[in-house]
Every structure is written in C-alpha cells, then in structure tokens.
C-alpha cells in the first residue's frame, strides 16, 4: 500500500493535525486508554520522552480538539475525547493503519512540507534540543 492508497480520512488527519511521530504516539496512547486520565509525566514515562515535551504535545492535542483536560491539585490531566465523531473515526482509522503500515505513516508525516521547513529552521540551532518542536 502506497501513501496515496491510505484511507482519505487518514491522509487528511495527518495533513491537518499530525506534526510529528511523537505527537502521533501520544495521541494513539491516549486513544488506546480512553478510559483513564493522563498527566504529562505519565505520558512521558510511557512513550519515553521528556515531561516538558509530553506536556507540549498534550496541550497541542487539546487545542486541536482531540483531548479534554481538567486541573487536579495543580496537575493537568488529559483524556481522549474528540470534539466530533468525524475526528474520532479518523483517529480510529489512523490507529489501525499505523499498526499495519507504520513506515508508510512515518514517511507521510516526514514528507509534509511544513515538517521539512521545521527541520530546516531547526538546523540553525546550536544545541540539539529534543524536547521542543
């Protein structure tokens, strides 16, 4: 299956919302465990990233309408609860394709023009900062 044979909703979801593989991993993790709430530190342990990066991904996914959040004793807790059913179906479809065709999806994410520009702009960074961007 090539990129153009991916379900249309998956292609659109990636084009509009997915900015990195890490962000995708966060989204799919919360979808898989939609019954529980996640803090940034719990997510960072699960997908092996920095807590700061996980917090940024979670806040971004909430802004995009995939997650809801609430404050609890100073900690922000997130839950997978998409704004629309269309969004929910698209993520379900993406989740399935990602399991079967992981590399096709990763290629698609990296072939986005906006992602190339981010890589290019980050080339002007002196330190390698894995927790941002």
């Amino acid at each position: 299956m090539t990129q153009s044979e991916l379900p249309r909703e998956v292609q659109e979801l990636i084009a509009q919302h997915i900015t990195s593989v890490e962000q995708l991993e966060v989204l799919l993790l919360l979808r898989e465990h939609a019954d529980r709430e996640w803090s940034a530190s719990a997510v960072s342990e699960e997908i092996r990233t920095s807590e700061r990066s996980a917090a940024a991904r979670l806040a971004d996914l909430r802004t995009r309408g995939f997650l809801t959040s609430r404050e609890d004793a100073g900690v922000t807790l997130y839950r997978f609860d998409p704004l629309t059913d269309t969004l929910r179906r698209a993520v379900a479809s993406l989740s399935q394709v990602y399991r079967e065709r992981r590399y096709t999806i990763i290629d698609l994410i990296f072939s986005k023009p906006i992602d190339r520009l981010r890589v290019y702009a980050d080339a002007f960074r002196i330190r390698k900062d894995d927790s941002d961007g």
Partner: peptide, 11 residues
C-alpha cells in the same frame, strides 16, 4: 553550524 546540522538530519 549548518554543516553540523546536516550531518544529523541529512536534509
């Protein structure tokens, strides 16, 4: 700076 980045990203 950019040559160093290139070695990392290969873009």
């Amino acid at each position: 700076l950019l040559l160093r980045s290139y070695r990392r990203s290969r873009m």
